[in-house]
Structure formats: C-alpha cells, structure tokens
Design a protein around this nucleic acid. Structure first.
Length: 340
DNA sequence: GACACGTGGCT
DNA sequence: TAGCCAAGTGT
C-alpha cells in the first residue's frame, strides 16, 4: 500500500465524521447498500448538511429499496422537493425498480454503472463503500486533493482524466471503502477549496503543492460562461376554496416532474403566451431565482377566481412540496392574498 | 466535450 | 452583493 493511503486510513480511523448512512471504521458493521446508494445520489452536487434531513425522511418512509420501488412517483417527487436536480429523484425510482426486479443491488462497478442515475462516481462509491470493491471514487474533493498532492497545473475539466489516473494509482486493495471516504473527508475538512488547513494535514509530507506553495491556487479551473438573465412572469390563481391553479411540469427539463404555476417568458418548455385563466390580475412584484446556468427575474401576477382554466388544474398546494422558485412565488402570493 | 440541470451556505 | 462552491449524471 502507498504511504499516502496508509497514512490517510490511519487518520480516518480517528477522524471519520459521523453520518446517518455511514458505519464507523473498524466497527465490523457492513453498511446497508440501499442507504449507501441513497445517500450517494442525494450527495451529488449537494452538501452533507442539506442531505441529512432528506435522508432521514426518506429512510423512515421507505426503509428498503423494495419499499421505495413500490412508492408512487408523485410521493417521491414531493419528498425530494427543495433538494434540487430533480432528475435524480426520477432516476432514483427507476433505479430502485430495476434493483427490485433483479433481486438486489449489483456489487461490481461495471454493473452498477448501467443503472439509472448511477455514473462513474456513484458506481465507485457504492462498489467500494458497500461492497468492499477496490474502485476509485473521483469527486470534487478527490480532484482537489490529487491536484495538490501532485501539483497538477492543468485546469479542470481538462485535468479530469489525469486526476482520475493519479487517484487510481493511490487506491489500496484493502479497505477501499474507508479509503474513499477518507479522501473525501480530508477534502471536506482539511484540504478545502479556500484556506486549506495544511498545518494539520496528515498528507503534508507527500504534498507537491505544499512543497512549492501552490496549494491555494489548485485545482485551476477554466473560466465559466456568464449567466444570462431571463425575464418572465408566473400566474398564481387562487380559488376561494383555497386551491391553486397548478400544472404538472414535463418529465424532462427544468424542474422536470415537479408541480409548478403556469408562466411565460422564462422557460421555453412550458411557455404560455396568455394567462391560464380569465381573471383580474394583480401585479405583486418580482421574485429572483438563480439556477445553475441562468438568473430568472419573474413578475408574480395573482388573482382569486372561480373561472374555468384554459390549462392546469385547481388543486390543494402544500408549499413544502414545491421547488424553491415556485415556493418563492407562492410565499409572495399567499402572504399578500391572505392579508385581504 | 459542452451544456442542462437546483439549492443553500459562505465570503 | 455577486460569485463560488458542494460526495455528478444524462444527453
């Protein structure tokens, strides 16, 4: 085993963070593949702090992968609301049903990779953490740690293949799951993007960036394109009985599969060119919401009406089950209308 | 390879 | 405040 891996495992034995899906190192307890898979999907581009509550709710409601496979699509989407990247929830259900159909999770990287919503990272994470296979996880933490250990000056994303090769070269044959979590914990707590704690880093003696003082400049990143701003509107029609006029968004694309209010001008997939219902619309002001690749400045128009809608349906709305953009509009409209 | 795809916390 | 960042995947 490389000195880096042995040193990191010894550090992890003492410093492993506690998480609801994790079994402590050297505890002898095999982690539950369902919980590892669920947590890894939730953790894609998402912080541990944000995931905790969702993970607890999901596992309380659906304790096994078969329970999840039997769930209603709408229940899973509603439970995922607010966590973002909703394609993950759609693929989560597809994957759960595929796993149930084949009688359990596959244990090897290549087969895991064929399942919906499981890419190179998640396949390696599940194979190593849940099944003790020597697969190499490469996430943002690993990229940062490797770029510094080996002083890689190539910017991301071009550097990804090189960093993957370097990460694989350090992965041990024993305790690969603990090793994978150790690198990620190191990246999350010591080898951080800004102000890395090199003074207490167990890998400092191995670190090429530390030797030449480049650690805070790594990994280099190619400049990102500027975000455009899209201008538009949302129509929030409220029935006197308390229902709201909503529509199910298309399965694919922005906020796919989620409940939303009819709108125009900001989202090509659901654009309407006229209000969804005849009403005396009141301008309540604007909300601003930033997505990964654009800003949305939306005027919120609201009305109370009993007219027949041109599209969408009047339904009860639980704001907790709305994606955040729609939640912002709801909060503005419900606050204003209820004051009357 | 480039781009679409959310959200909340931190600086 | 505006931008950066977080355990990526699908097309």
């Amino acid at each position: 085993m490389h000195g880096e891996a042995a040193t990191l495992l010894a550090w992890y034995d003492v410093n492993a963070r506690t998480m609801p899906w994790r079994s402590p190192p050297r505890s002898g307890i095999r982690p539950d593949p369902y919980r590892i898979w669920l947590s890894e999907v939730m953790l894609q581009q998402t912080t541990v702090a944000a995931v905790r509550a969702y993970f607890t709710r999901f596992t309380a409601r659906w304790p096994t992968v078969s329970d999840l496979a039997a769930a209603q699509d709408a229940d899973v989407m509603a439970e995922w609301a607010g966590l973002g990247y909703y394609a993950r929830a759609r693929n989560l259900l597809k994957c759960a049903r595929a796993v149930r159909a084949r009688g359990g999770f596959p244990t090897d990287y290549a087969t895991l990779l064929t399942l919906p919503g499981i890419g190179p990272y998640t396949a390696a994470a599940v194979a190593s953490i849940a099944f003790d296979q020597p697969a190499t996880v490469v996430d943002g933490n690993v990229e940062r740690v490797m770029s510094r250990l080996f002083n890689v000056q190539t910017p991301l994303p071009q550097a990804k293949p090189e960093l993957t090769t370097l990460a694989a070269s350090l992965t041990p044959q024993t305790r690969p799951g603990d090793y994978a979590q150790a690198v990620m914990d190191l990246g999350a707590t010591i080898c951080t993007p800004r102000n890395p704690a090199c003074g207490i880093c167990p890998l400092r003696q191995f670190c090429a960036a530390w030797d030449v003082g480049t650690q805070t400049t790594l990994p280099r990143k190619s400049p990102k394109p500027e975000k455009p701003t899209r201008i538009g509107a949302l129509w929030l029609a409220r029935h006197p009985n308390g229902d709201w006029l909503v529509e199910a968004r298309p399965e694919k694309g922005l906020l796919g599969g989620m409940t939303g209010f009819p709108g125009m001008g900001w989202d090509k997939s659901t654009a309407h060119d006229a209000p969804p219902i005849t009403a005396n619309w009141e301008n309540l002001g604007k909300i601003r919401h930033t997505f990964t690749h654009f800003h949305a400045d939306l005027t919120v128009l609201a009305a109370t009406t009993t007219a027949a809608p041109n599209h969408g349906m009047f339904q009860p709305v639980n704001p907790e089950n709305l994606p955040t953009l729609m939640r912002k509009a709801y909060d503005l409209a419900s606050g204003t209308l209820l004051k009357r």
